[in-house]
Design a protein around this nucleic acid. Structure first.
Lengths: 194, 194, 194, 194
DNA sequence: TATGAATGAGGTTTCATTCAT
DNA sequence: GATGAATGAAACCTCATTCAT
């Protein structure tokens, strides 16, 4: 067979994801990954060129799935910009909660691959956010002189919570609070007052 | 020389900060730090217990300086909550720009010390933010059902920019955009329209 | 190669025995052991947990072989106590001469493992000596109020010679002189005199 | 003053003796010796050329004191050979019991100095034993075809007990048992029997 | 003379990667 | 394709010794 055993590839990735999320990149030994995956050490090299590539595959595959899911959702119909933002934020939160290790993983992306990883998939995510905001600015529903900065802000806020919050907030609360800050900020409005 | 030389300690820290910011933790060799600092390899161990502690000292000292500066500023006078937030954000941005490596450094904080570092000093920073927001909520100028989450968001946004922005925005723009999102969000208000 | 190679293990031990006998524990570099054994430095760690364990294995294996040989010999037939002592002394001398490094090695046994090494195997040797003497005392052929002390004395005498004698005596002379002192002491007897 | 502070020299030696007896040569750090002696690290080098010499001084001084004491005792009067042996054995046992670390120390004599240490003082001790035996052989009171071997045996027996005996025997018992083996061996004699 | 900060050679050990089976 | 024994570069850290004060 040309394509190696896809199930074994996943088994290796799962083992690696678990381990890389548990301890920093350099403290994860390929020997442990192999053991946890139930394969020989050498087998890893049949499926991945080296440690770095195995690691990168985890991030890439995760982000790829997220981005593809999002693209499917957003392409189904044209949404209002705010609605689009909510869809993206919801997907981000869901993805983060399903892969709580993800941000932990990204902490340890070794420098060289970081750039390449980002350019590949992450950029698409930032672009989606930026485009949604730009559409809102265009139709007058949003105001934002620097949508490219705001696009960076949003995953950053989520990341802070995933990494540094002592007790993870619920999915709903997380989404609502992100959307609240993104849309309305903190200032009390006149209309809020009696 | 009879007493530990504080200037030499700084020289070592400066060399380490430079190196740790350039490449990930495990790719920085203490030998290089020593060489760059112009001291012997063993001298590092006179000033820092081990590699991890040297690294931690960079983060701790940096955050400590930031927090202390902030406390001095804020204790001078009582400010409106929004003004307090701006002072903190300004200090954060200034600190980030003066130590562009700082967030890069934190990326590689090995797990064990991360917690301790945070609890020690970082927590004070989060607390300052949270208290400012709570004061605003109390006096009616701000609305925020979860100030502790918002306090996490703010440094997260800054971090995203410092790490992932291709071209660093100017100090002023960064501060203004952060404050804009924090206070007003993105929604265009009625009063904004003609 | 799929299974640990027992021959290679021996090759490593032989190299180590040679080196450890040549210079004290801390002056033997594992790098040299590997070179002399014709294996890579890391290979040592496939066969032995660390330097200490490699070293301990030399002593343990040596003493184990000696004790097992002795047990085989003594179990073949019931001997008179004096004959048993001679068999043990002969085996000790032969072993010492075949492994002239052995006592040299024991000089440097790091403290912690010394105890354990002794309790494990060495104790069996002391016990054999002590039991032989006790049997002689019981059957009236020997007199000894403290066989446990005498059992300690015998290897001690051999050791002195192996370590401190400028010119090693012959096997036969060594055995005879040990047995002479053990059985008869130095006093001239009446019957010796004309 | 030409001669450095002799009391300080002793303080250093006492500290070193304690430490060297506790753990093997290479695990004793000069820093610890200095600390225990209550002096600076550099001071050690005022009194001893280097670690090796400090260590050697402990053995040399100890053996020198023993040998000098013995020479004084033996020169007072002419003794029968057996009496001379008893005097030496007694002195050896006393010295061993007063410096229980001594044999422990010798275990770790680094190879190079061992020879030199021995030639210097230890040889005198062996010579005393050997001469006493030779005198006994000459006057017909002792029989020993190899007094030089027997001279090696005697300290070896004592050493075994000091190092390997689980419970140290009393001074008297140790002396008596050594003398018993040396003089009479283990064989029951006809005259022993009723 | 006394000190202890500074030094750096050298030791042990780890682990990504290779390759014979 | 799968395995795991073998490899060796490279890292951290120790500690005897020096020397400026």
């Amino acid at each position: 067979m040309q394509t190696l055993d896809e199930a074994k590839r996943r088994k290796i990735q799962d083992a690696a994801e678990h381990l890389f999320a548990t301890r920093p990149y350099h403290e994860v030994r390929l020997e442990d990954v192999a053991a946890q995956a139930g394969v020989g050490k050498g087998t890893l090299y049949t499926y991945f060129d080296n440690k770095q590539c195995l690691f990168a595959s985890l991030l890439n595959d995760g982000i790829t799935r997220l981005v593809e899911t999002l693209q499917r959702q957003l392409n189904q119909a044209e949404h209002e910009p705010t609605r689009t933002l909510r869809i993206i934020v919801t997907a981000l939160v869901d993805h983060a909660l399903q892969h709580p290790q993800l941000f932990e993983l990204m902490r340890f992306v070794p420098a060289p691959s970081r750039t390449s990883v980002r350019s590949a998939r992450l950029q698409q995510l930032y672009d989606m956010l930026e485009q949604a905001i730009r559409r809102g600015v265009a139709d007058g529903s949003l105001r934002d002189p620097h949508p490219e900065l705001t696009a960076l802000f949003i995953p950053g806020m989520l990341r802070s919570v995933m990494l540094f919050s002592k007790t993870l907030p619920s999915r709903k609360l997380l989404i609502e609070h992100l959307m609240r800050l993104i849309t309305s900020g903190l200032l009390a409005r006149e209309t809020d007052r009696p």
